[in-house]
Write a protein that binds this DNA or RNA. Structure first.
Lengths: 244, 244
DNA sequence: TCCGGGACATGATGGCTGTCATGCCGTCGT
DNA sequence: ACGACGGCATGACAGCCATCATGTCCCGGA
C-alpha cells in the first residue's frame, strides 16, 4: 500500500487509542510516521524475556498475555487488551524484558520507538498522565492478584479469576455472561498459579455442575451469583470458613 | 518554631528527595510552603483503608507497610522506605485508599495536597518521569511478589523475602548481612502470605541452624549463599525439585 | 489410513501447611 | 506482687493439592 494510505491507517489507530488522546495534533501526525504497525497470530511471541526493550507497544486489536517462565512452571502475570500499553516498564528503564509477551488471538500492535516515546512524554503532560493512569491500573491489578493468591484454595482463585474476567470483558447473553477469550486449561492454571490437573479438575466439575461452561474460544457463566458464592464459600460447603 | 525555619526545614527535605529533584527551583519553594510534614511512631496508622486520598505522601524518614485487611487475614502488599512516594495510585484516581498504611518505626512524612500534586505533574516533565519511575519500580516489585507467591513452599517464600530485603536494605557486618528492620513473626507471615505458626516454625528453625538470626529490631544473615540455597532447594534437601 | 502429539480427563498417594490447642516468657498496669 | 496480654514456640491432626500414572479424543502429517 502507499505511504499515505499507511500513515492514514496508523493515524486512525492512534486517534482511537485513549493513551494517545492527550497528544497534540502535530505529535499525533509525527507519531504516525515514526510508529510501526505489526500483526500477529495466536501463539506468536511479540517478544521473549531477556530481549532489549526498544519499543513502547500499544495494543490496537486483540489480547496478549505476559508470561514469566519460572523453573517451577510458567506464570501469567497479566492479560492486556485493546488500548493498553505493554512493556512500558521495560522501555522506561531500558532494561531487557523481564517476561515474554504471547498473543492469545490475532493481534495488531502499534510500536513506538523508545526515543520518540520519551520525547512525547516530555512534551505532552496529558500523555504522561495517561501513562501514569495505565501504570496505576496495572498496580491495582497486580495488587489484587497478590491478595487473591494468598493462601486461598485453587477453586476460590479460579472463581475470582473468572469473576474478574467477566467484569473486564464479559458480555451479557441469553445464556448468561459470556467471556470471549480462548484460554487453555494450562493458561488458566498459569493465571492462578496452580497445575493443569487442578485447573482441569475444577473446570470440568464446574462444567458438569453448570457453574461455568467452556466453549469454543469462550467461557459462559450462567449465573455470576452462583460463581460468586463458590468464590466465597469454597465450593463444597461444610465448615469452609476457617476463621471462626 | 518560626514559619521561616519550618519552611527551611521542609525545603531541605524536598531537596534531599530524588522524586523532587526534577522540580524547578521555584516549584521547590512553592512546594515547601504548601506541603506538610508529619511525624509518626511505630504502629501508627498514616491512613486507613477506605479513607479518601487527599495527599501525595513521600517518606522522608523511616519505613511504612501497606496492609490490606482481608477476611482470611492481613496481607502486606509492600514496604516503602525513604524517598519513596506512597499512595500515588489512590491520589491519582482520587479514590479511597485501597489499603492501610502503618509505620514500622519512627517516620517523617511529607504530604503534598492532591491539587498541587497535579499542578507539579503538568509543569515539570522531570517530576512526571520520576513518578513514572517509582510506579515502575512498584510494578516490578509486585510482579516479583506474584511470582514468588506462586505455589512455592512457605520456607522458599520466606527465604526469598529476606534475600530481597537484604538487597534492598542490607548492610554488611562482621556477622554477615544485617537487615535493620523490626518485623514481628506475624508481619513476616503477612508479607509472604502464610500463617504466624508457619512463619514461626521456619524462623525458629533457621535460628537454631544459623541460617537467619532474629535480633532486637534486626535480622542477621550469616551467609547469603546458604540462604539462597535454602530458597532454591526447599531446605530439607531430598527430592525437593519436583519438576523432573 | 495410521501414527504422533497436544489438550483434556481421572484416579491414587504423599506431603506441606493451615488449624487448633497448649505453654513459656517478657512487659505493663494496678 | 499479681494478673492480663502480646509475642513466640511446639505438638497433633486433617485436608488440600502437587505429583505421578494412565487413558481418551481430536487433529494434522506421512
Amino acid at each position: 500500500m502507499g505511504a499515505d494510505l499507511r500513515s492514514e491507517r496508523i493515524l486512525a489507530a492512534i486517534r482511537s487509542l485513549p493513551v494517545f488522546r492527550g497528544l497534540s495534533a502535530e505529535d499525533q501526525r509525527r507519531l504516525a510516521v515514526l510508529a510501526e504497525v505489526r500483526e500477529y497470530q495466536r501463539g506468536d511471541h511479540v517478544w521473549r524475556a531477556g530481549e532489549p526493550a526498544e519499543y513502547l507497544t500499544v495494543i490496537v486489536r486483540g489480547r496478549v498475555k505476559i508470561v514469566r517462565h519460572a523453573e517451577t512452571g510458567d506464570v501469567i502475570l497479566e492479560l492486556f487488551g485493546e488500548g493498553e500499553p505493554v512493556g512500558a516498564i521495560a522501555v522506561y528503564n531500558y532494561m531487557p524484558y523481564p517476561a515474554s509477551a504471547v498473543c492469545l488471538e490475532p493481534v495488531t500492535l502499534l510500536m513506538v520507538p523508545r526515543r520518540d516515546y520519551f520525547e512525547l512524554l516530555d512534551r505532552n503532560p496529558d500523555f504522561a498522565r495517561a501513562i501514569i493512569r495505565e501504570l496505576t491500573k496495572l498496580v491495582v491489578a497486580l495488587t489484587r492478584k497478590v491478595e487473591e493468591m494468598r493462601g486461598q484454595r485453587v477453586e476460590t482463585r479460579i472463581a475470582q479469576l473468572f469473576l474478574t474476567l467477566a467484569e473486564r470483558m464479559g458480555r451479557e447473553t441469553k445464556e448468561g455472561t459470556e467471556i470471549p477469550l480462548q484460554l487453555s486449561r494450562q493458561e488458566v492454571a498459569d493465571l492462578v498459579g496452580t497445575t493443569v490437573e487442578s485447573a482441569i479438575r475444577v473446570l470440568s466439575r464446574w462444567g458438569r455442575e453448570g457453574v461455568l461452561i467452556t466453549g469454543q474460544a469462550r467461557f459462559v457463566i450462567p449465573s455470576r451469583d452462583r460463581l460468586r458464592r463458590v468464590a466465597e464459600e469454597g465450593g463444597s460447603g461444610d465448615a469452609a470458613r476457617p476463621e471462626g
